[in-house]
Design a protein around this nucleic acid. Structure first.
Lengths: 208, 208
DNA sequence: TAAAAAAGTTGAACTCATTCATTTTTACAG
DNA sequence: CTGTAAAAATGAATGAGTTCAACTTTTTTA
């Protein structure tokens, strides 16, 4: 199984990805040249392209790691959400937002999102889309959980609503990364305000 | 006012834009080189850059023309919407979608959207964002119109709701252009289904 | 263990978007 | 009409991502 060749391959790929995380974080995505990554990873330019199809590919790989973490932390919130539809939904949304800048700068997010649209049919574009699907599914899970607990009316379709809410939070996140002046706090406030009417509409009335 | 120089400038810009619409539509955005546009417009490469800052700039200019048309046709629908919240909202959304591929291919939309995220701070990124803002405002206008007519409950904030609905239709449009296999008809069906819970929640109850 | 095959690495060459010093064209003053 | 300043056009040069034919290393075969 693990012959010398396999070991070297795994090692080289790891070195390239590590170099990418380090250099992208330090200098920004655009100003890092493939040659720089190759040098830091002690391989040639051609070898970088042997492991990743494009420069964007390398970025998507780092984004995917981040989103996996976000999904894991979101699952914990779905398992035991705060009381009330609005607070529960916002808690989940905010957990996404708060994690978002841990490893990735806004510039990196912008590039990754642009790639996910422009190169949607490539392996990495597909990978990115799958991550989005899983985030939307997690929002649906949250709504189902709230319905079961009696916080949300049972006559709304959780799948449609989950997608609508995810699409909204995603679009709001795009606006956030598009503008360097907007803070995480601004984003939280905007989304909380925007979610209010939805929350009110889907909340179970306390009493007649 | 209209000296020779002004006339020539306007003429050259028009020629470049016309070459872009033609060539981008025929060959796709990526495979058209600036040199091709320059040749078709009978100017030099440097002159193209004298009129547009980047290749993406040229694309955004064509997108802006399209969106202006979409806004105009949307305004007619807001002025006299079909009966019922769901039908009225869907009619407006569908008018956007139906116009979308008139001048622009999916590939061109993908590139334009990617640019609007990646180069959000550039003049064209800002221009694109403004167009989005106007579309969202039009959705808010529609909700206000429906409230005034009694089709929609008056206790929901039309601005927040308008943005949520716009964000959703925009994200659904992104998914549409990302995948060449999805048809306009698929998109309409998906969005109609997705809007149903929202429509139900905001509709004025006919009677107690 | 030695030769042949397979897999992987390499970096110079290629393509394009973009820039900028030079040249050309237009406007305007005398 | 002529000279000069301003504006614009030009296209060769630059730089970065990407490709690919030749070269090495590893594995397999006998």
């Amino acid at each position: 199984m693990a012959g010398l060749r396999e070991k070297q391959k795994a090692d080289r790929e790891k070195r390239i990805l590590k170099a990418a995380v380090t250099k992208f974080g330090a200098q920004g995505y655009r100003s890092v040249r493939i040659e720089d990554l190759a040098e830091a990873a002690e391989v040639s330019v051609g070898t970088v392209y042997n492991y990743y199809q494009t420069k964007g590919d390398i970025l998507i790989a780092t984004v995917a790691m981040e989103v996996e973490e976000v999904l894991a932390s979101g699952a914990e919130i779905v398992a035991d959400p705060p009381a009330g539809a609005h607070d529960a939904l916002c808690e989940l949304i905010f957990s996404y937002y708060d994690h978002s800048l841990e490893y990735l700068s806004k510039e990196m997010w912008r590039t990754a999102m642009a790639l996910s649209i422009e190169a949607a049919a490539t392996p990495n574009g597909i990978r990115y889309a799958e991550l989005d699907q899983r985030l939307a599914a997690q929002m649906t899970d949250m709504i189902v959980a709230l319905q079961q607990r009696g916080d949300v009316r049972t006559d709304v379709d959780p799948v449609s609503l989950g997608h609508v809410i995810f699409n909204n939070l995603n679009q709001m996140f795009i606006e956030f990364v598009k503008n360097d002046a907007v803070t995480l706090s601004d984003l939280r406030n905007d989304v909380a305000r925007q979610m209010q009417p939805i929350s009110d509409l889907i909340a179970n009335r306390k009493m007649s």
